[in-house]
Design a protein around this nucleic acid. Structure first.
Lengths: 128, 128
DNA sequence: GACCAGCTTTACGTTAACGTAAAGGTAATC
DNA sequence: GATTACCTTTACGTTAACGTAAAGCTGGTC
């Protein structure tokens, strides 16, 4: 149902992603989403849905909405002149560096979890 | 200087990690750190420093302080009876699942960044 | 003994990201 | 035509994670 549709209501999206309509409207309030209107009712297109996915992925990675804006802006850039393009590539590289740091942190944490589990298992074997 | 020391002042730690003393005291307020005292002055041991590292790593991964508490609690657990140990292993597994989701998100985002960069580079070749 | 650097507590202020309530419009259904 | 199920706007409230200011103790130095 979700991916082949042409348009979505606000509750379609709220149901699909398990968030409130208030959140979706909030993202619009700060300019992260700009859905069409039919009368006064919001109509979301596939591109809006994609942006919402990017926002929520950002949230899972601990991004603020302003940080997610950078990601969303990369999704439909102005495609202007050369210097803008080079600026964009710079932004992309920045995001990469941030993700690399997070990858590093995750690996460290995974390692620590392994240590913790090992000592748990050892303690279990001692006790019997 | 940092790693071989026996004790640290609050400003030692704030300097090393680039955070304010207010933050460090805040972590103590909510029970994430419990340094010794000399008089009324806080004295931090290596274990406190390690906990602080865990907290800050959690922050970089978007963990709330309450979520980081789970990680810190894994670092020096009560090591009680069998059922507590099994509970602990459950917690560890939960953290692993969360990190796996984050790994997934990072890989997706890396992929998207690659796409974005490619279309930038393509646009640059057209123009230039 | 005045001064400074660094420590302390208390307490009110701030920002992000929504939650929640109030009041009302619209369109299909019983 | 009244109920139901959506949608809307406006606006005040809430929580986490500190920021910031005020006021004061403490130990060394000029």
């Amino acid at each position: 149902m979700p991916n082949t549709m042409l348009e979505y209501s606000i509750s379609d999206l709220s149901r699909e992603f398990g968030i409130t309509t208030r959140s979706i409207r909030h993202y619009e309030d700060i300019g992260l989403l700009t859905p069409q209107r039919r009368g006064q009712t919001r109509i979301y297109a596939a591109a809006d849905r994609t942006k919402l996915k990017l926002i929520l992925r950002g949230k899972r990675l601990g991004f603020s909405l302003e940080e997610s804006r950078e990601i969303v802006d990369l999704y439909d850039p102005a495609k202007g002149n050369t210097s803008q393009l080079k600026h964009l590539i710079g932004k992309i590289q920045q995001q990469r560096e941030k993700l690399k740091q997070q990858l590093n942190d995750i690996h460290q944490m995974m390692h620590d979890l392994q240590d913790a589990e090992n000592s748990c298992l050892a303690a279990l074997k001692e006790t019997g």
